[in-house]
Write a protein that binds this DNA or RNA. Structure first.
Lengths: 144, 144
DNA sequence: TATTGTTATACTCTATAACTATA
DNA sequence: TATAGTTATAGAGTATAACAATA
């Protein structure tokens, strides 16, 4: 009786658990931590300052310093002072960094393995539900 | 054009990101790490050996030793040898541990805040989709 | 004086390898 | 000999506080 009422919450927990585990495996298969892969992922969408990365990664700037330092030492990102405000450093992903990140994406089998089980209609359904959960327009939100 | 095809995957990413962040905040609000809260959560469903915890938490047994040692030092779990096989240690949550874990659940606002946006029919829909993604019978899977 | 990023430091998470106790 | 758990150790993630450079 106490089981039924928690089923959806438990399913969501299990889903997130599986997703996180798959991402960790993918990053580690490429020799990166999840945090490093995540940072590289942000940079694939364009350069960012250290502070912007801290906001996006939900962590302290001093942590970003460490993460970027390790990635820079491996030649996966670069860090150059912003000419407009030399306190700021703009971080960019290098070609090698892009290759590593693509390798993570390839190793990250969760989307294909799991989302691939849904047919097109189900995927639209899921997209619509997620849009509500995220306060964003999903691909299936128009017209309900 | 390249945007549309990745929308569902991006939505799932954003959803998991928000979920993880909310859980981290909830645990830290109670003075626990996410890993510690997670371990306590397993124990709310019954005692487990160190090895079983390692399997469930997807980590090395030596890591479980450390996590349990810290929780034990704070009086949140106990660790007693199994009479049937004295190599094995059974870990149990204490009343104080249950209180701490309930505090995490209360602070974990994601389920109420987000899943609460869906009406009953939408929740059943989501449950059914998650059941397919997880290879488990969801609460709405029967008769599908 | 305020802001950006770094350094120093400390704690936790995590794994590998060597070890102890038990089976 | 094999298994469960621990210890020693090391690397990575993370935050706080003090600091440097720049604005």
């Amino acid at each position: 009786m106490a089981d039924d009422e928690s089923t959806l919450q438990q399913q969501v927990w299990d889903f997130v658990y599986a997703y996180d585990a798959a991402y960790d495996r993918a990053a580690q298969a490429v020799g990166l931590s999840a945090a490093q892969a995540c940072l590289l992922g942000q940079l694939t969408m364009g350069e960012r300052s250290m502070g912007e990365l801290a906001v996006e990664l939900l962590c302290d700037p001093s942590n970003v310093t460490q993460l970027v330092a390790r990635l820079e030492a491996r030649g996966l990102v670069t860090r150059v002072p912003d000419p407009a405000d030399r306190r700021v450093k703009q971080v960019s992903i290098t070609p090698a960094g892009r290759r590593e990140h693509r390798a993570v994406r390839r190793a990250f089998d969760f989307p294909d393995d799991r989302l691939g089980r849904l047919d097109e209609g189900e995927q639209l359904q899921l997209s619509s539900l997620l849009a509500k959960l995220l306060d964003r327009p999903g691909q299936a939100a128009a017209g309900g």
